[in-house]
Design a protein around this nucleic acid. Structure first.
Lengths: 218, 218
DNA sequence: GTAGAGAAACCTACCATCCGGTAGCTTATG
DNA sequence: CATAAGCTACCGGATGGTAGGTTTCTCTAC
């Protein structure tokens, strides 16, 4: 029965593309059910292969998780860090970071954010890599807050605590935001950015808000 | 080998007390490793019994989780909601809620906060109970923010979004705060409360800050 | 064009291990 | 002797992973 379909479809699938497809499906399932609760059979079934057949393309469950996490961090690098790297003013940069990250979580379905918390399931080597990339991102935000502190714009709080607090707000979005929820997406994003920025800044300038909001319009 | 020790100790342990001990140990392990990753053998070993022997006191793995979650929610009711219920001024109440909850997470080891996110592992009936209790707490915070909005003290943001944002900040503490960390506990608590309150309030009054800080001194 | 070799794709069947949970026996207590 | 406490030994099932075979595609040789 699957034969017929595959005979037509297979030729246009290169090995690499098929592996990518498996990653995609695995990400969807693991994000929904969590790493431990997802079995290789679940993934194989969803991808239309046997478990053994799937192992022809991938290397194992843990490696699957590592690939998904790496991809998620690529997204952060590409869609959050890169577009804000050139912003000179720390206040504008902070606002852009929050807005891009929160927006990304809301658009792409933030489930992967929760998967990123399951680093304990990785091998020590892989865990070190992922934690390193997370730390890099953390340091960018903390450094921005330190610059704001130097400029006298930060509240009288420890920049490290403030950074953790920000990440808490942002990462938690994936636990409550639903695209089909009552509140409009852009309202949530606007309000959320306001909350995040105002939590750490003494007196946020309105001009900065307007600039970045325009920047993110597509 | 265990015989010897147990022969002495057992008499002073009533059945109920021993069950409590199992709950305690189970909570510690499950908080550290997560629900799925914790096996009944792990718990039994840590408690000094066989898996089968342990089943003489408890009813099953899921029931164990439910008990732990219920206990955690009891803590919230007792140490966060109850002491702030009588606070009339919404701004003071908000500050007290944040301070008590954050302080509790930092003292008692916030790991249980993370366990509380694993409601998917509960039976539907148990899940409904725990989610109901969580929702009650959520509504208390949201209602407080609504009162602040009526008083014109809330920022121009949706109270629901603001509530979720606050819970994100608070619940995330358990993921980064370490009692043996570099920053002093009371500094973290003070800064964190400041961040949380200022995130939602237009112009927090300093008097309120001082009052509550005095209130929480023990 | 086609026969056939070799490789890639993929499946069936199975492995050892662990899971939560239980039956039934033995031991200690009172 | 009765009861509670706690053990050994096991259950059925699910797990991640693999060995080895079968099918299908692709490329070459003639």
């Amino acid at each position: 029965m699957p034969r017929q379909a595959k005979a037509k479809v297979t030729p246009i699938w290169r090995k690499e593309a098929r592996a990518d497809h498996i990653y995609r499906v695995a990400a969807e399932i693991m994000c929904r059910k969590g790493y431990e609760a997802t079995s290789m059979n679940d993934i194989a079934e969803a991808v239309g292969l046997t478990k053994a057949g799937m192992y022809h393309y991938i290397q194992g469950k843990e490696h699957l998780l590592f690939q998904i996490m790496s991809f998620a961090m690529d997204m952060v690098d590409e869609n959050v860090i890169a577009p804000t790297r050139e912003v000179a003013d720390p206040e504008e940069r902070l606002r852009a970071l929050v807005q891009h990250h929160a927006g990304r979580i809301m658009e792409v379905g933030g489930q992967v954010t929760m998967l990123l918390e399951e680093t304990w399931a990785l091998t020590p080597a892989h865990r070190r890599i992922i934690r390193g990339r997370k730390r890099e991102y953390f340091e960018i935000v903390r450094e921005t807050l330190r610059q704001l502190a130097s400029a006298g714009k930060l509240r009288a709080v420890d920049p490290t605590v403030a950074t953790f607090s920000l990440f808490g707000m942002i990462n938690w979005i994936s636990r409550w935001y639903r695209r089909d929820g009552k509140i409009q997406k852009d309202v949530v994003l606007k309000d959320f950015t306001e909350l995040a920025v105002c939590s750490v800044l003494k007196t946020p300038s309105l001009s900065g808000a307007r600039k970045v909001r325009a920047l993110s319009t597509r």
